[in-house]
Design a binder for these strands. Structure first.
Lengths: 213, 213
DNA sequence: GCGTGTGAAGGGTTTCACAGCA
DNA sequence: TGCTGTGAAACCCTTCACACGC
């Protein structure tokens, strides 16, 4: 097989972030007009063993050149196919504090297929303000706004004590993909895909691995 | 064995975040004056199977009561021992944009053993301002300030194009634990523990798992 | 009886060693 | 010769089934 045959294949939670890292790197290389890359180089840039890089990539079909390496733009396109990064995803942020603002103002999401289409807060002073490319709406508008803007992914960037309520509202409004930045364990129905980014846990994990090495 | 014997034991990258989640939950429960918890409940709150919860906990010695469950405050203390969460870690943030400010202003890190002691930016308007509990210093002060403040962990919250340079400065200044929020692959010497939180990758992973379920 | 603790089985992931191709 | 691709082995992680203790 010489084509990308693995669109049906499901990849695990270990593999996907790794592949997304490979993608990040080849996109970077393409911008710098590099046309070829070795598994050895990808390995160094991602802290992944070179064999594992090759194994991962070989999963999708063989598009490496023995003795030469991988063609950067070809690799990029295959990875995008697999990851589904070619269509735009519409994002909504709930909570326009510092974290919410950081997300909304981040340049570069859009060229990665991620687009903010709505933002919500309950603080009157923030409603109607422009943040990034969107106008902040009142949190009571979530239901209506999410349908109007065809939101795919909801991002929870509110204080912990209201995070669960916001999650409920998002789900009711039909958002089945949630990224949770709050420091509480959310409970959502099984059909919802939930991913947590807990900054305290990241810091503590880092601390653990610095000490225990 | 009935004691916590596993201080020497090293846990993997899969296990540690899970344990930190257990800890988060028992800390929460303790605040709510709950004194006892079943593996079944921890399971529901963390999306981890109950057997796995018991296996994880049994790693540290048996402190569950068959037929009854776990004593919350005893469990908390053991987990803190294992994770090393009893000493305070000093943190420094480089880049006081929205993300840096979000971190500096987050209430609750301190009671988790994480304390911000320094913040840096290169934008003149920000220098000298108070953010959270620290005064923002110029980025040129990193070397001196890090020694003065005994920084353990450096957090990179600057734009991608300067992230590598900042990483270099941190390492030169003696910071060997780095949490990187920028969207580039940093290269650091092997003695440095580096952990990456890439928001674009989190969003893309979430998208992948929403579609492929 | 109920819930924890644990050896054994099962499944998945990573490494090893080497085959194959430019 | 150099680098990719791949079966086999090793390793780790998770689940299963059940023993044990309150």
């Amino acid at each position: 097989m010489n084509d990308c045959t693995s669109k049906e294949k499901k990849f695990s939670d270990v593999v996907i972030p790794r592949i997304l890292n490979y993608l990040k790197i080849v996109q970077q290389l393409e911008k710098n007009n590099k046309t070829n890359i070795l598994s050895e180089e990808i390995s160094r840039m991602t802290n992944t063993s070179a064999v594992l890089v090759r194994k991962d990539l070989a999963n999708f079909g063989k598009f490496g050149q023995p003795g030469t390496g991988y063609d950067v733009s070809r690799l990029k396109n295959y990875l995008l196919d697999i990851i589904g990064g070619k269509e735009m995803s519409n994002l909504a942020v709930v909570g326009v504090g510092n974290l919410g603002s950081a997300l909304l103002n981040y340049k570069g999401f859009e060229e990665e297929g991620l687009k903010f289409v709505a933002a919500f807060d309950k603080q009157e002073g923030k409603i109607g303000k422009i943040c990034g490319n969107v106008i902040v709406e009142h949190i009571d508008n979530i239901g209506e706004s999410i349908k109007r803007n065809n939101v795919h992914i909801g991002i929870i960037a509110v204080p912990s004590d209201v995070a669960q309520a916001v999650a409920g509202t998002l789900v009711e409004s039909g958002v089945y993909s949630i990224l949770n930045f709050s420091h509480v364990a959310l409970s959502v129905p099984p059909e919802v895909t939930l991913r947590n980014v807990d900054l305290a846990i990241e810091l503590k994990a880092l601390r653990y691995f610095s000490v225990n090495r």
